[in-house]
Simulated assay, not measured.
Amino acid sequence: MFKVLVFILAFSILPARVWADEDVDVELVLAVDISGSMDIDEARVQRSGYLNSLRHPDFLNAVKSGRLGRIAITYFEWAGRISEGSIIPWQVIDDAGDVQAFTTKLQARPIGTQRATSVSNAILFGTSLIDTNTFSGERRIIDISGDGPNNTGPPVITARASALARGITINGLAIMVRPSVSFGPLDRYFGDCVIGGPGSFVLSVHEAEDFAVAIRQKLILEVSGRSPPAHLRLANEVRTDCFMGEKLYPGFLDRTYPELGR
């Protein structure tokens, strides 16, 4: 009996966050594309855009505008697979010191690119980060950037359905600085095949110098919970082939896709 009592007392003095989820306004995953179709200069501009946006006073003001005035945020980079060395663990943001700590970690990460583009793996990994964290957010969001359609890994529509089934919203940043002639408008692909959930939206970047402004606008909308402008919410009628990326690579016809009925 004494041993049982000691066990109970020992655990009763642990910090509250061990026992219960920590309430935040938003659980936000930043999933950033570093696929080889982006050159190193674009990757640097994108990284700078995230750093500047997170450090901008408007971002922290948006955080403080929430009911609780704090969010939980994590970051990782992806291409055909997840770049494990890029992952910044979950951190609560509720003051300028937290922002500085988070962005210092991000700035220290080396910048590079990798092969292939798996939007689906990025969504699935982001979903797992949300499912396994110790936070309880009023909203749960995966914020995914990309400069091309899914061309490896599971179908993107399957990954999206898995996230949406868990109550996660997916927003997109379509990087269209060097648009490919191999497929249609990337923002339309993101709107039809990638984003989803309440208030989901797509922002487009057409010029390298627009990265910082677009990223800041996206983060403020996500953190504040404001409704995105109508021009950022694409029509619900699907007009895009969500397998356009896979079809550009050899072996597509040899794979089984239940989503296509074969």
Rank of each mutant, 00 (worst) to 15 (best):
120 S>F: 09
205 V>S: 12
104 T>R: 14
153 G>I: 06
113 T>G: 07
12 S>G: 04
190 F>D: 02
183 F>R: 01
168 I>P: 07
160 R>T: 10
139 R>W: 01
127 T>Q: 12
52 N>R: 12
116 A>D: 14
138 E>I: 00
40 I>C: 08
68 L>Q: 07
111 I>Y: 03
234 L>I: 12
232 L>V: 10
136 S>R: 11
219 L>G: 11
54 L>D: 02
189 Y>D: 03
34 I>F: 14
244 M>N: 04
76 F>Y: 12
138 E>G: 09
190 F>I: 08
209 E>H: 11
43 A>N: 07
28 L>H: 03
39 D>G: 10
21 D>F: 08
232 L>I: 09
115 R>N: 12
66 G>F: 04
192 D>A: 07
143 D>F: 03
93 I>R: 02
250 P>K: 12
86 S>M: 06
251 G>M: 05
161 A>G: 05
146 G>I: 03
161 A>Y: 00
90 W>I: 07
139 R>Q: 13
226 R>F: 08
165 A>R: 15
257 Y>T: 00
135 F>L: 07
41 D>A: 11
28 L>P: 04
218 K>R: 15
193 C>A: 05
60 L>A: 05
45 V>A: 15
210 D>Q: 15
70 R>P: 04
152 T>Y: 01
253 L>N: 13
177 V>N: 12
81 R>G: 14
142 I>E: 02
117 T>Q: 11
35 S>M: 10
57 P>E: 12
148 G>Y: 11
225 G>L: 07
78 W>M: 06
220 I>T: 15
105 K>Q: 15
230 A>Y: 00
234 L>M: 09
245 G>P: 12
138 E>Y: 11
121 N>Y: 13
202 V>T: 15
42 E>W: 04
181 V>C: 00
194 V>G: 06
196 G>A: 06
25 D>Y: 05
24 V>M: 00
92 V>M: 06
72 A>F: 06
120 S>D: 09
100 Q>C: 00
255 R>G: 01
207 E>A: 15
209 E>A: 13
159 A>M: 03
1 M>D: 10
103 T>D: 11
46 Q>K: 13
20 A>M: 10
